[in-house]
Design a protein around this nucleic acid. Sequence first.
DNA 1: CACCTAGTTTGGTATGACCAAAACAGGTTA
DNA 2: TAACCTGTTTTGGTCATACCAAACTAGGTG
Lengths: 246, 246
Amino acid sequence: MTDKDRPDALRHVPNERAADVLFECFADMINRGVLRDGDPLPPEREIVQTYGVSRTVVREAVLALSNKGLVEARPRFRPVVRKPSYDTAMATVGNVVGRLLQEPGGIYNLFETRIMIEVALARQAAQQPNAKGIEQMRVALAANGAAIEDNVVFYQTDMAFHSALYAMPGNPVLPAIYRAYVSWLEPQWSLMPRQSDRNRGNFHAHTAIFNAIVAQDPDVAEQAVRTHLDAAWQQVRSTFKEEDMP
Amino acid sequence: MTDKDRPDALRHVPNERAADVLFECFADMINRGVLRDGDPLPPEREIVQTYGVSRTVVREAVLALSNKGLVEARPRFRPVVRKPSYDTAMATVGNVVGRLLQEPGGIYNLFETRIMIEVALARQAAQQPNAKGIEQMRVALAANGAAIEDNVVFYQTDMAFHSALYAMPGNPVLPAIYRAYVSWLEPQWSLMPRQSDRNRGNFHAHTAIFNAIVAQDPDVAEQAVRTHLDAAWQQVRSTFKEEDMP
DNA sequence: CACCTAGTTTGGTATGACCAAAACAGGTTA
DNA sequence: TAACCTGTTTTGGTCATACCAAACTAGGTG
């Protein structure tokens, strides 16, 4: 296979790995919609023919696509295109973040940013009330209150309530951030014993947050969020006897 | 090469790719400090001998390490270990985020989260003043004021001032977030024409933020940040005639 | 129509080879 | 001694081929 036989995209690219060029090629196709979400990638041997590169290069390019979350590759299955979203962006860092959380204080560093963001969200929700968003919080809160006795359902509705807070501004980045928080902190949270009295306390905290937002009082909303999340942190901390509190 | 000859780590791992196992192996070594920051990875052919796998597998594992930012691999150089940090985490998402920013409204979605965070930081700085942090802001502000006539230096000191805000809480996640913002939004900002009158306005905005923090007035600090960043967004918007404002 | 089966496709791995650039080791020269 | 040149070795990047096991497919069978 000589250089002349190749498609333009892979010709004369000095000091750049062929696999990287091929990666960019497919990334662009995914980005421009030529390859749509859910489509399978062509078979490796077909890509070899099309682009005039070895299977080694194809595999490295596909692996890079997979590592960056642009395709989803299960062993022995054709890779499936996943249109990039803020969720996939968060997922790609999951590995690194997971290791950072193991360092002393790592978990609290992350949780502190969550407190900061949820405080900001609550203040903003109180200052710029949004009928649809408040309604979503209302139903989430009601479902949360109805599930106090059921630890599993309470956990789900708890997340749904917080999720409604992140959805308030209508910015797609924020819900993705929340889902990332949940997936990263979930290993700690899920091991924490759930009890209906704790559920009751958390529900009351949610109610206080919601009421402050409805009352359009950002200061009270901020304090309610801080109280709630600080308490949640204390629960986690007491469960694991971690010594990495600030 | 039979299964018996291999190290335990790579034996009997059903339905899991050998490359993934090898990746985890090296990721753990980096995480536990066996491979320290700056160390070069062993040569591929040596890894082949040590772990009893083919070079294909080794290359895929190294590529995965590279894609996740655990090692830095330049063409024809030995990969160098990079201890995972929140910065590398941000860098790995850079590719995906870059594509998301090209979508309509993408840039503002990201910038809105920056406004939200800097508002929260300013409020927190005003509420929980920190002598060392305030001193750092003071020197950053002074340097900023001295550079009004020099667009290049003003840009640098501008970033240093905001960076000081992110450094205030002492949480290593926050400065990494700021650096990520800068690197992602830099393509837009750097093309924007810099003028000394704009510099003067920005410096006054920085001064207002700083004074409000020193005065321990979170509401004024919040408003100062909003005014500053909204103005900055208007500058960007007018420069590029983007139609994706909220 | 459901179910089983044999052949085909396809991703995962192993092996060996070659190239170009980097790293290295000597020897040469100023 | 130190700087420079040079040939060898090392090492990552690429190619080609082969084999395996699981997934897929087509065809036949009940």
